[in-house]
Design a protein around this nucleic acid. Structure first.
Lengths: 159, 159
DNA sequence: GCAGCCATGTAAACCGTTACATGATTGT
DNA sequence: ACAATCATGTAACGGTTTACATGGCTGC
């Protein structure tokens, strides 16, 4: 999360912690909860380590901070971003984990689970994402996950 | 992790916490670290909640426990396993997260990152997985990720 | 005999979650 | 006026990581 946040700050320029939090909260992945208790302490950590700087935002009586990335932060961010080994790693997929244990359900449960899952995966749910790029990426990943799911089921039926 | 562990115990019958730990440690996903400090306290929690039971393993002076799932544990496990809503959720992918910020790298860094990532994704790395089913699932997911990666890059080059 | 793995755990530090708290702004 | 949202945080709790600790077994 720290790496992604550094990248976000580098990309979207001076940005408030609230905005950072919202981007995570509106992310299609449940992995990024975007809770205040996770984000505010994190940006404080990043600032303490000298990876980001805060300026209090101008023209506003309202308390508001804006963060920019430092040159040290940029170096750390680039190291995180260009880490191809971690990028290639498998990550976490709640579907893959469950498919692994499909045999533990009885036939009725299997049928119900597979049907509901297919619906959830195909959902052209236009969730309120932050940017178009995010929505596009989301759709792309959704499609390939659906392919993997269908391919697995096909093989699994012939077990 | 608790749900997956319950499923693992239900599937593989009486099983030692060490074996549970090793399955996670050898998992292709870095998400499951398989550290002792995560697994041993977890099985203790599951036992306290009455979801699993331990018998000390026979014929062995060596201290060794074996766990089986209880009927309550089975119900909890089935609720976890058949949760199609969570299954359909997006999970976490270290590649997807990074691709989102690809423009922050310069051309040379991009080229290097994309090439190394492609290699890592295509790696027919026969990592020492626990079961054949796990290896099969792993390969399937690997392939779909490679497709998603290539598809993204193709679109991205025409930005 | 000793290195390395099997096997089980614990302790401190760290990080995230959930829930709470506060006040300012915006829209109706 | 009042509700909803913007905006920033904190506190208690819980789970994971990292590191340490212990002892038995296995192969050379």
């Amino acid at each position: 999360m720290e790496g992604a946040t550094l990248a976000q700050i580098a990309k979207d320029g001076p940005i408030t912690p609230y905005k950072i939090k919202e981007v995570y909260r509106l992310s299609p992945s449940a992995f990024w909860s975007g809770s205040a208790g996770a984000v505010y302490p994190m940006v404080q950590r990043l600032e303490k380590r000298g990876l980001i700087q805060s300026q209090s935002s101008p023209n506003d009586g309202r308390k508001r901070r804006e963060y920019t990335i430092t040159s040290l932060g940029k170096r750390v961010m680039l190291a995180w971003l260009s880490d191809a080994e971690r990028a290639g790693g498998m990550g976490f997929d709640p579907l893959r984990t469950r498919l692994f244990f499909l045999d533990l359900l009885n036939k009725k449960q299997q049928q119900k689970f597979l049907q509901e899952t297919e619906e959830n995966l195909s959902a052209t749910n236009p969730a309120p994402l932050f940017t178009e790029a995010a929505a596009k990426m989301h759709k792309l990943w959704e499609r390939y996950r659906l392919n993997a799911f269908r391919s697995f089921i096909k093989q699994w039926r012939q077990r």
